[in-house]
């Protein structure tokens, strides 16, 4: 099944990826081939098969409600691309 240009653009938007026109062309073709390959799964009858999200059969892992040291404000913000006072700074967000 070929991916349409609209689908590729929509997925790029969902994933917040700005693509160059060259990348867009390249990916549309490559993703179509990969999706064709993946479509072989549709041949397989999986009726009644439980999905397996995790190979590990463990459950109920908790930590106690005990405080642990936080980072200092400077440590927390040390990697921030833009900082204003004690905040991360981002372009204006319009609700």
């Amino acid at each position: 099944m070929a991916l349409t240009g609209d689908q590729v653009r929509w997925v790029a938007h969902l994933a917040r990826l700005e693509l160059t026109e060259e990348e867009f062309q390249l990916f549309t073709g490559q993703l179509t081939r990969i999706v064709d390959f993946i479509d072989q799964l549709q041949q397989l009858n999986t009726e009644g098969v439980e999905p397996l999200a995790h190979a590990l059969p463990i459950h109920n892992v908790f930590r106690p409600d005990e405080p642990a040291p936080s980072l200092s404000v400077d440590e927390a913000l040390a990697n921030a691309p833009a900082r204003k006072g004690d905040f991360y700074s981002v372009p204006a967000v319009l609700d």
């Binding site: 980072l71 927390a76 004690d86």
Partner: peptide, 25 residues
């Protein structure tokens, strides 16, 4: 006392970005 997935405080009104760690960042 602490957050859902890390040991940072849930106290209201702390100075900005003073109750964070690699997990909640």
């Amino acid at each position: 006392r602490t957050k859902l997935f890390c040991g940072c405080s849930t106290q209201f009104g702390l100075p900005p970005n003073s109750a964070t760690c690699p997990v909640c960042i």
